[in-house]
Design a protein around this nucleic acid. Structure first.
Lengths: 165, 165
DNA sequence: CAGTGTTATATACCGTGCTATGTTTATGAG
DNA sequence: CTCATAAACATAGCACGGTATATAACACTG
C-alpha cells in the first residue's frame, strides 16, 4: 500500500495536501533555524521581519499585514514578549491600542537571521522549487517528492543541486 | 496597511502561506459539504474514499495510503466510529491489527458524496485553479486572490466562470 | 452627559496536523 | 521455552491555524 490514494483524489484533497505540505516546509525551516541557534519558532519570523521593516505598529495592523487572524498574532506576541524579543506600550492617545516594537534583543535576532538564516532558507526553498513547472497539482506532487528526496537542510548550499525526482 | 508583507518575504514564508491556503480551501470545502447536508468533516473524506475504493483495511495501511501519521488516522477513525460511519473488527490471525470497514451508513454517505458533493467540489476547485500558471509562488498568489474574490461555494456550477484577478 | 454603537485587544475553545511514548501482541534467537 | 526485539495501535501533549465572544476604551447621537 503506497501513498497514491491521495493523489488520485485530485482537487478534492487539495486543501489537506497544501496544508500538510506547508507544515512540512515549516518543520524543515525550523530545523535550519535550530541549526543556526535560533529558538524563536519559524512561524514567528514573518512577524519579526514586518516589525523590523515597518517599525513599531499595533496588533491589528500586524495581523492585517501578515494576513493572519488577530488572535493568532496576539498569541505570537505573548510568546515573543515573554522571550524578550518584543515589547508593547500603550498608544498615547488611544488606550485600547498596543504598540509593538522589537527590543534590542529582538533587533539582534532579526539582524542575525537576516544575514545568515534567511538567505540559507531562501536558497533551500528555491532549490526545492527549482524544477517545478506546470499546473498547481503537478507542482505540489513534485515539491512533495523534492522534500522527501532531500530536506531543506540539505539544500542550503550555493544553489548547487538540481536533483530532479 | 494592506497584506503585502507576506508576499514580500518570498520563499521565506512559503510554508505558512501554503499551510493557511490549505486551511482556507478546507474550510470552504467544508461549507460546500455542509450545504449538501454532510456533517462529516471534509478532512475525513479522503479516508472514506480510500475505504470505499479499497475495501476493508487496517490502520497503518490507511495512514500510509493517505500519507498521514498514524495517530491522526486513529483519531479520525474514533470520530467516524462514534458517528456510525465505520466499524472495526480484529484481524483473525493477528490480534494487534484492527480491520476497518465502512458501515452500511458509511457506504450510503460515500455514495451520496460521490455523486453530488465530490463533483461540485472538484468543479469549484478546478475553477479556482483554472487560470493559474507559472512558478509556484505566482500560482499561490493567484489562488489566494481567487479564493478571496469568490469562495468555492460560488464556483460549483458547470465550469462557467473564469473570473481572473 | 447618558446611552449606544464601534473598535482594539484578549480569552476560550476547536480542528487538524505532528512527535514521542506506552501497551499489547507477534516473532525470532538462543 | 524464554527473552529480546519489532510491529500495530493507542494515548498524551504540542503547534499553529481558525471562529466566537468578552472586555475595555473610544466616539457619536440625542
Amino acid at each position: 500500500m503506497t501513498n497514491d490514494q491521495l493523489k488520485s483524489l485530485g482537487y478534492l484533497a487539495l486543501g489537506s495536501r497544501l496544508k500538510r505540505l506547508g507544515e512540512r516546509l515549516q518543520a524543515q525551516t525550523q530545523s535550519i533555524l535550530a541549526e543556526s541557534g535560533f529558538t524563536v519558532p519559524a512561524s514567528h519570523f514573518p512577524l519579526l521581519a514586518t516589525l523590523s521593516t515597518n517599525g513599531p505598529m499595533n496588533v491589528s495592523d500586524l495581523a492585517c499585514g501578515l494576513d493572519l487572524a488577530q488572535p493568532g498574532v496576539t498569541r505570537m506576541l505573548a510568546s515573543l514578549q515573554q522571550d524578550g524579543i518584543v515589547t508593547s506600550k500603550a498608544h498615547p492617545q488611544d488606550r485600547r491600542v498596543r504598540i509593538i516594537s522589537l527590543t534590542a534583543e529582538g533587533r539582534r535576532v532579526v539582524a542575525r537571521a537576516r544575514n545568515s538564516a534567511f538567505p540559507r532558507i531562501e536558497r533551500a526553498v528555491a532549490d526545492a522549487c527549482a524544477s517545478l513547472e506546470g499546473p498547481l497539482l503537478a507542482q505540489i506532487d513534485a515539491l512533495e517528492e523534492q522534500l522527501q528526496t532531500a530536506p531543506l537542510s540539505a539544500r542550503t548550499g550555493q544553489m548547487k543541486r538540481r536533483a530532479n525526482a
